[in-house]
């Protein structure tokens, strides 16, 4: 009985310690003064983290927008208010679905890749090698990846929104025959730039920090074996997804809770 409680306490302390360590790593990476070569490294990471995630983001955005439109139509048409489809699609995308779904896809697509890459660099002693050459891996490897991830997610999320709304319009206007004028005007009346769009962006930014942080930390802290890296990769996806959903609730409560 006591040993179980003790084990629980030990596990808790372990987690807390890991959290503290990851915080130290994050701060060292974030506040590292960029060196001469920082810019090309950052561009390189924007490419592999951001550009390479575009396809999956665009395709998912398109389909989610189309499905939302279709589902919204079948419900709203019963009340004769199918013009509100545009408003519904836009609001749910901009406020909620774009940041969350983008972050989840990002965790699976880019986060896991980051963890595996960094873990493998550790396993093949490339990180040690950097250290011995006198280059801080936190600056050279972690920092550009972190910044690139943090910047990419809001961009991807906005692209997701636009593509999703376009998909919603394709289904709603072109296929189901909602009058285009009311589709847009309803949307414009209900979507507020500073409340909805900006808040959605803030969410995406917070998710970007969380997902990238978890991904680089898991890679940096992984056990340098093939098993250890595969576990770290799984952990990245699981922890990042949970973090995104949890943070989303908190942020939503803070942003829209008083409505």
């Amino acid at each position: 009985m006591f040993t179980k409680i003790q084990a629980l306490g030990a596990a808790g302390l372990d987690k807390l310690e890991a959290f503290g360590r990851s915080g130290i790593i994050l701060s060292q990476a974030v506040f590292a003064i960029p060196g001469r070569q920082a810019w090309p490294l950052f561009i390189q990471q924007l490419y592999s983290v951001g550009v390479l995630s575009l396809i999956i983001i665009i395709v998912s955005g398109l389909f989610i927008g189309m499905v939302l439109s279709l589902q919204g139509y079948t419900i709203l048409v019963d009340y004769g208010s199918e013009q509100a489809v545009g408003q519904m699609v836009a609001l749910s995308l901009v406020r909620e679905l774009s940041p969350v779904v983008t972050a989840l896809l990002f965790a699976g697509r880019a986060g896991s890749a980051l963890t595996a890459e960094i873990g493998l660099m550790k396993a093949t002693e490339q990180l040690s090698s950097l250290e011995m050459i006198g280059v801080d891996p936190l600056r050279r490897i972690i920092a550009p990846r972190f910044w690139a991830g943090m910047l990419s997610l809001p961009l991807l999320s906005m692209i997701f929104s636009v593509v999703g709304i376009w998909g919603g319009m394709l289904v709603g206007v072109d296929w189901l025959g909602i009058y285009e004028g009311s589709f847009w005007s309803n949307m414009q009346n209900s979507v507020d730039f500073s409340e909805d769009v900006v808040n959605g962006l803030i969410k995406a930014l917070v998710f970007g920090v969380a997902v990238t942080w978890i991904a680089v930390y898991q890679g940096y802290d992984s056990v340098p074996t093939s098993e250890g890296i595969s576990q770290a990769t799984t952990r990245t996806v699981v922890y990042a997804s949970l973090a995104v959903l949890g943070l989303d609730f908190i942020l939503t409560a803070l942003m829209f809770g008083d409505l």
Binding site: A90, V94, L155, S161, V162, S185, M187, V191, D196, V197
Partner: peptide, 14 residues
Amino acid sequence: GALALLVLALKVSG
């Protein structure tokens, strides 16, 4: 990304 922001601002939120 910038274009998407512009669309969200002008076309979507009016």
